Amino acid sequence: MENRIHHLADVQSSRIGEGTNIWQFCVVLKEARIGNNCNINCNVFIENDVLIGNNVTIKPGVQIWDGVTIEDNVFIGPNVTFTNDLVPRSKSESWELKKITVKTGATIGANSTLLAGIVVGEYAFLGAGSVLTKNVPPYTIWYGNPAKHTGFITRKGILLNLDLLDPKSGKKYFYTNNEIHE
């Protein structure tokens, strides 16, 4: 399986996994690492100190700055903004890189902003337009500005309320050891 890199993309990195698609008007800097079977949509910028796992989807208009790690099977919606500096200043000599990690299976909704220095837990779900200012536990749902915990989500994407109840089926789930169980 070969990569498909659009001829209008500027891909400087040679560390692109098999089966990864990179669409037009993307810029991928030299030290970036991207896994297998990823889909990097148009108009995406990926800086040097970035690690992207396998089977990741990144929709258009996303900028991924130094210090961002995106693990396997993550969905990044259109125009998501990652940050890596809590006190940004032009030409600052004293800026401090703050990393962001998005764990396996997480979903980051369109137009969300993630502040520097946070971790998004496994299979967590951040709703569209949210501003995430703190760490998110696994299998939790967050919405708003600032984002607030509004429920839970199963690995299969079943949305649960704060009582771990599926409103559609009435089925009750349990949250133990940072996982959802039936």
Rank of each mutant, 00 (worst) to 15 (best):
S13A: 08
N135F: 01
V27G: 01
A9Q: 07
G77W: 12
R89S: 08
S169L: 03
I141N: 01
V44S: 08
N36V: 10
L159W: 02
G53V: 12
L162I: 13
E122C: 04
L126Q: 01
G129Y: 03
V28E: 04
T81F: 04
V80T: 12
A32L: 04
K99I: 04
D49Q: 15
E122R: 11
Y173G: 06
N21A: 11
E182Q: 11
L115S: 02
A124P: 11
I141C: 12
K30Q: 15
C26S: 08
G121Q: 11
C42Y: 14
N135V: 01
F25W: 14
V136K: 10
N84F: 09
N21R: 13
G35L: 03
H149Q: 10
E182G: 06
F25C: 10
G117S: 07
H149P: 00
I180S: 08
Y173A: 11
I34F: 03
G67E: 06
N135Q: 01
F125A: 07
A147W: 07
L160E: 01
P137I: 01
F152W: 02
F45Y: 14
G170M: 04
V62C: 06
V68I: 15
F45E: 02
V50Q: 05
L29T: 07
E96M: 04
N37T: 11
T81I: 15
Q12S: 08
T69M: 07
T140D: 00
G151R: 09
F82G: 12
P146W: 03
K99Y: 09
Q24E: 14
V44H: 06
N135G: 06
I52S: 13
T176I: 12
H149G: 00
K148L: 14
A124N: 05
D66E: 07
I70F: 04
L160G: 02
L8Q: 13
L114Y: 07
D49R: 15
F152R: 00
V56E: 12
N73S: 13
Q12Y: 13
K103T: 00
E31Y: 06
K148M: 12
C42A: 14
V27W: 04
E18Q: 12
N135I: 01
A110N: 09
S13Y: 06
P138Y: 06
T150W: 05
D10K: 13
W142V: 00
E96W: 00
F125V: 01
Y143V: 15
D163H: 09
